[in-house]
């Protein structure tokens, strides 16, 4: 595990930002989801050692950020949601500065600053002051500054905010590549569930300071609502008989089959798709695909919050 949090609570005056949070984040790409005010940023700041928890334990890469905050921060990277740059510094200088603060010698820092900026797609614009950048360039610069010192664990707070579709795809490709090629585990805090489905393999959902889910993405999506996706041979004249047979066996079909013969069916017992097979047999319909229907992450997210 890259990160373990046990019974973590953080209370501000009159507000409980985190309430007995226990999560384990494995290697790989993990999404930290939750509505506004769920406690995502507070959790990240506790992990970074920027905020002292009221109670509970944290272990980041085997270290306790309360006892060794500087040691933890040397081994992790953080890309904040808001602007985080220094006035009058160019992107190269900013990244080299970040690398030196993380302990790299000056020569290594400048070399890696160039490499990281090339990696995120900043070419000759890297010699311009950061305050003149567009949103997309700033996001790329923040990512380069977060990875320039080669962190083992990377926290990204809304990395695709304000990006156009092409830039968003590139940012997601970089996030995927960081794990696959560089072996850097990523924790992605975002509201964009589509991004999570594209790049993450583990999900932690927070709501009102509590953990609602902490599971692999497949498991979260697979926790369907008892419906099955059924694809049959598209012979339209048998569809009415199939529908009647389903009704007779206590199954609900929804919505109506489309032109390709795709059905969403809820049998009487969610764990037993037998009546679907039985209905197909009675109506003489050839079943080509039958599997529990996975909800979209949006649906799963709303269900968990409800």
């Amino acid at each position: 595990m890259k990160l373990r949090v046990r019974s973590l609570s953080r209370r501000y005056e009159g507000v409980t930002a985190l309430d007995d949070v226990t999560v384990s984040i494995p290697e790989g790409r993990t999404a930290l989801l939750g509505p506004n005010g769920a406690g995502k940023s507070t959790l990240l700041k506790c992990v970074l050692g920027l905020v002292r928890p009221t109670s509970g334990d944290i272990e980041v890469l085997g270290l306790d950020p309360r006892r060794d905050p500087l040691g933890v921060r040397a081994r992790i990277g953080y890309m904040p949601e808001d602007d985080a740059h220094l006035p009058d510094l160019t992107a190269v200088e900013l990244c080299a500065y970040g690398a030196e603060l993380a302990g790299l010698p000056p020569r290594e820092a400048i070399d890696r600053a160039h490499a990281a900026l090339f990696y995120v797609g900043l070419d000759d614009k890297r010699y311009m002051p950061v305050q003149g950048y567009s949103t997309g360039l700033r996001q790329r610069t923040k990512l380069a500054a977060a990875i320039v010192h080669d962190p083992e664990l990377l926290f990204l707070d809304e990395p695709t905010n304000g990006l156009d579709p092409a830039s968003r795809e590139e940012m997601l490709a970089l996030i995927a590549d960081l794990r696959e090629r560089r072996g850097c585990s990523v924790v992605l805090s975002t509201h964009l569930l589509a991004d999570v489905e594209r790049v993450c393999d583990h999900v932690v959902v927070l709501a009102a300071g509590k953990v609602v889910a902490d599971a692999p993405l497949d498991e979260v999506l697979g926790r369907g609502d008892g419906r099955y996706l059924v694809r049959v041979k598209p012979v339209a004249e048998r569809f009415a008989a199939f529908e009647q047979a389903l009704r007779d066996l206590g199954c609900a079909s929804e919505p109506s089959p489309d032109a390709r013969g795709e059905w969403i069916i809820r049998p009487a017992s969610p764990d037993d798709p037998g009546p679907i097979w039985e209905a197909a047999l009675r109506a003489d319909v050839q079943v080509r695909h039958l599997a529990p229907r996975k909800a979209s992450l949006d649906e799963a997210f709303l269900r968990m919050l409800a």
Partner: peptide
């Protein structure tokens, strides 16, 4: 994701790291 990674020059770093005690000097120099 459909995006592309333009450069693969970024690699892992295995070199030496300095103590955080150097941070004030780095801040001052920049």
């Amino acid at each position: 994701p459909a995006g592309v990674v333009h450069s693969l020059a970024y690699t892992r770093y295995a070199g030496a790291r300095r103590s955080p005690a150097f941070a004030p000097l780095v801040i001052a120099r920049y």
